[in-house]
Design a protein around this nucleic acid. Structure first.
Lengths: 130, 130
DNA sequence: TCGCTAACTGAAACTCTTTTTCGTTTATGA
DNA sequence: TCATAAACGAAAAAGAGTTTCAGTTAGCGA
């Protein structure tokens, strides 16, 4: 999803496409699963409060996902569905695309639960740390 | 794993099995994925600082797992390996035992990553909220 | 069983992250 | 261009978690 369509989607729902919001979106697009500190560094002209509010808004619009991989919250664009390999030794995070989930084995039929998304993290030791 | 063996394991590593630590362990055993607030309610005689320190110690011993399911951290005994269905509407959390992961499809061979554990959460709407 | 000591506890103070408040500014539609 | 609801940001507040430190205790050895 490109920036233009995101801006259009925001306007369509009655939200203003301010320069600050666009800056946060661009910061989010620059890398995967960034911490607040990293995001701040990518848009230093935007006030801290505004970053928090923008992430909240984008989250409610379904455009941004909030992760918690062990060391504080991280944020990523929701379009990038992937999973994480987290090294418990050095903290490095890498991602993989293919979803190793066997949907048939999810206990959804009997429970009446309707799944909309999921999150999978694999913890262990990366190649460097072994 | 029963309380006795946990106490034995702690002593064996040079840690003392104090009444406070036992109380936290019993509180953990009372329910799944509890918040700090719930744990506090289950062992009100233990100081807040000691609960944090005990959870940290038990985590390092591999006896307790820390979860983050969207609303702050939660804690559970590591012995109970299961996954979570989280209702985004009412916040209810239920768990299921069977692991729907297709290990063959995990990209571990080529990456050199050595997995030791994983965490899977499915988000959606529970039967009641639909 | 007793006493020693390293380990442990908890109240208070502190740090860090996130949220709220409120006066000012601005994107957008008419 | 103008009006105005929405948004911004600085400061203050709230909240979660950590550190400090003086007093207490579990567990070992005698």
């Amino acid at each position: 999803m490109d920036l233009g369509s995101v801006v259009g989607r925001m306007r369509g729902r009655g939200y203003k496409a301010t320069p600050q919001r666009v800056a946060v979106l661009e910061a989010l697009g620059a890398d995967q699963h960034q911490s607040m500190e990293e995001l701040r560094g990518r848009c230093p002209e935007v006030g801290l409060v505004t970053i928090y509010r923008t992430l909240d808004l984008l989250g409610r619009l379904g455009l941004v996902r909030r992760l918690d991989l062990g060391d504080g919250p991280r944020y990523e664009l929701a379009e990038s569905h992937h999973h994480h390999l987290i090294c418990e030794s050095c903290g490095d995070i890498s991602e993989f695309e293919e979803c190793p989930l066997d949907v048939e084995r999810l206990p959804l039929q009997n429970s009446g639960f309707e799944a909309s998304s999921h999150s999978l993290e694999v913890y262990g030791r990366c190649a460097v740390c072994q």
